[in-house]
Design a protein around this nucleic acid. Structure first.
Length: 413
DNA sequence: TCTGGGGTCCTAGGACCC
DNA sequence: TCTGGGGTCCTAGGACCC
């Protein structure tokens, strides 16, 4: 028998920033999303000031200035690298580690009474080796482990919900919308059946659960009862789609600029697909703008012979952008989604194959190698460069301390 | 007047997650 | 004036097939 554990990095993005700027320790710090739009990570001091998760930065800018809050633009390159390092340590402690998000991993531990000691040891090693603090939740199911990790932060870093009595007390007082997988819509529907706490939710009749929230809801309720329904993914599931999208730094009204943005997104998406050894059989482009104060969007998509060739995907994306484009609209964001992904290992001969796919494959391989050696973006398609007027703002970005030679921190004795 | 039963595949949209 | 970016799964309904 095994138990589930969830290791969750505390205030992850802020913690990453502090690693290389210890002066931020003990001070209120927030990390902002693209265009410095929203608050997406907060230090404990920032939370104490009442800065909420996901609030628009412009609403709290004055408060931040007044209270000396350090606001930083997100540096995902740095966070991704540190996330990999944390996972590497976790893998030393558990045979199966399922990366759930950039800052959370599920793992299993043997149910032999040593779980809490193991969890503490793991937490200590992650801290010592990476500088990141994790909270660990233990439970007989994934949903309960997740719930335990939420509470672990205030309980010394490790919390177990393996004891049924402890579990019952917690679920009885927990508002149902704090359960993993239950948000407002579902909470409203559950309230109609008189279930407002996690315990009341778990106690609902199976048929009612199925009818109200579908199979997912039923599974979740069973998980809260201690009956394990969700298994640990032994290996990462095949990726279904790749999206690259951005809110523009300033509105885009010209087709040429929109096409340049979309070309750039398609190139990045193609790179990501190649990194996963995949090719795409469909491309979709979406654009967003504002009308009477509300956000509206449009999209167009197309099938194409599966490919990971940047040039082919750029061509497709640009023609879709043209299809979406309407003169006079002031676009605020756009994105490219690659779908119908499949492994790129079987060079399935195309009908009327003239050797071009193979040449494109070799070209892309060379581009990827050069960009890996010289730094991302060293080599780009000309169509990306026509206009960069759409580039998002990120004026408060920290250096990529661990992934770019030119950003390597220096140490003075 | 009465209009089957069972299946597949695809897509759009809803809901949720971090 | 200013609200991110990247994902997943499920469901309902339409088209189509025998």
């Amino acid at each position: 028998m095994t138990v589930f554990a969830l290791a969750d990095c505390n205030n992850f993005f802020v913690s990453c920033e502090r690693l290389f700027r210890p002066a931020l320790e003990g001070r209120p710090v927030v990390v902002l999303s693209g265009n410095d739009g929203c608050v997406i990570s907060r230090s404990e001091e920032a939370k104490a000031l009442g800065l909420g998760m996901g609030v628009p930065f412009f609403e709290v800018r004055a408060l931040c200035a007044e209270r000396g809050v350090e606001a930083l633009s997100a540096n995902h390159e740095l966070y991704a690298d540190l996330s990999r390092r944390v996972s590497a340590v976790l893998r030393r402690h558990a045979p199966v580690v399922e990366g759930y998000s950039i800052d959370e991993s599920f793992l299993t531990l043997p149910a032999d009474g040593t779980q809490e000691a193991r969890a503490r040891a793991l937490r200590e090693e992650v801290r010592r080796w990476t500088g990141i603090t994790v909270s660990v939740g233990l439970g007989p199911t994934k949903a309960l482990a997740k719930l335990a990790s939420d509470r672990a932060k205030k309980a010394g870093g490790v919390l177990s919900l393996l004891d049924p009595g402890v579990r019952e007390r917690l679920l009885a007082e927990l508002p149902v919308e704090q359960v993993w997988g239950i948000a407002r819509r579902s909470a409203d529907r559950l309230a109609a059946h008189g279930a407002r706490t996690a315990a009341e939710f778990a106690a609902l009749d199976d048929a009612v659960l199925r009818k109200t929230l579908g199979v997912g809801g039923l599974r979740l309720a069973r998980e809260l009862r201690g009956q394990s329904c969700l298994t640990l993914a032994e290996s990462a599931p095949e990726r279904r789609s790749v999206t690259v999208s951005r809110t523009f730094g300033r509105p885009v009204g010209a087709l040429a600029a929109l096409e340049a943005a979309v070309a750039s997104f398609a190139a990045r998406a193609a790179e990501r697909a190649r990194r996963h050894g995949l090719k795409a059989g469909s491309v979709s482009v979406f654009v967003g703008w504002r009308e009477d104060g509300r956000a509206v969007s449009d999209a167009a998509d197309a099938r194409l012979p599966p490919t990971a060739d940047g040039a082919a995907l750029i061509r497709a994306a640009k023609s879709l952008a043209e299809r979406c484009f309407v003169e006079g609209r002031s676009y605020r964001k756009a994105g490219v989604v690659l779908g119908a992904l499949e492994p790129d290992d079987s060079p399935q001969a195309e009908l009327f194959d003239d050797g071009r796919p193979e040449r494109a494959r070799r070209l892309m391989k060379a581009v990827d190698r050069l960009n890996a050696a010289l730094g991302a973006g060293a080599l780009r398609f000309a169509s990306e460069k026509v206009s960069r007027s759409w580039t998002p703002q990120a004026s408060r970005r920290s250096p990529s301390w661990t992934t770019r030679w030119e950003d390597l921190p220096g140490v003075r004795a």
